[in-house]
Simulated scan of single mutants.
Amino acid sequence: MISILAPFLASSDPDGLESAAEKVISEDIFAELEEAEAAIESPLPDYSIEGKGKLGEIIAICLSTIGILVISFGLGKIIKA
């Protein structure tokens, strides 16, 4: 249920982690990091599917949540064995 409501309740303001990084890292280095190419491309950048609007965000969040649950369950089975 939270996955479905999240796109409508999420803040459009900058991320708290990003604002904290701006305070800790010098402005020049922070600008370089923002422009740097990602080491690994995200399969669902910004928790959205391009061109789908809010429905794409809902689908992306649900898929991500299910993916994390599957990975956690699998790791739990491996560790327990």
Rank of each mutant, 00 (worst) to 15 (best):
D46S: 08
I49F: 07
E22A: 12
M1L: 06
L69Y: 12
E37N: 15
I58L: 06
L17R: 13
I71E: 01
I59R: 02
T65A: 08
G53W: 00
F73A: 06
V24K: 05
S19H: 06
A20Q: 10
K77I: 02
I68C: 06
L55A: 11
P43R: 00
I58C: 07
G74P: 01
D15E: 14
I78D: 00
A60E: 01
L5R: 10
K77M: 03
I25Y: 15
A31K: 15
F30M: 15
I25D: 14
G51T: 07
S64A: 04
K52T: 08
S19M: 13
A39R: 08
P14N: 15
G51H: 03
L44E: 04
G74I: 03
L75N: 01
E22S: 11
D28V: 05
A31S: 15
Y47W: 06
K23W: 06
L44A: 05
F73K: 09
E35M: 10
T65M: 05
A38I: 01
A10D: 09
L17Q: 07
E37F: 08
A20V: 09
I71P: 09
L5P: 06
L69D: 03
F30E: 12
I78F: 00
F30P: 10
I4Q: 11
L44N: 05
E18S: 15
A81W: 02
A39V: 08
F8E: 12
L75K: 00
G56Q: 03
G16E: 07
P43I: 01
F30A: 12
M1Y: 06
I61K: 02
K80H: 04
E34V: 13
L9F: 07
F73W: 07
S3Y: 04
L55G: 04
I49T: 07
S72G: 02
D15C: 12
S11F: 09
A6D: 10
I59N: 00
I59K: 01
D46T: 02
G67A: 01
K80G: 03
K52E: 07
I79Y: 04
K54R: 07
G51N: 03
I49Q: 11
L44T: 07
S3C: 11
G76I: 00
A10G: 10
A6K: 08
S64N: 08
I66S: 12
A31M: 13
G76L: 02
S48N: 05
A10S: 14
K54G: 04
E27F: 07
S26D: 15
E34Q: 15
A31P: 13
S48M: 06
I71A: 04
A60N: 02
E37G: 09
L44V: 03
E57T: 02
S11E: 11
K52D: 06
S11Q: 14
L63E: 00
P14K: 14
I58S: 05
P14H: 14
G76E: 02
S26H: 08
S42P: 11
E34W: 09
G67V: 04
E50Q: 08
K54I: 01
E32T: 14
E41C: 10
E37M: 13
A81N: 08
E37Y: 12
I29G: 13
D28T: 08
A21F: 14
S19W: 10
G51K: 03
D28M: 05
S26T: 12
M1R: 05
P45Y: 03
S42Y: 03
G51S: 06
S12W: 03
F8D: 14
I71W: 01
E32S: 14
L55I: 11
Y47T: 05
V70K: 06
E32R: 13
A36I: 11
E18K: 13
G74R: 01
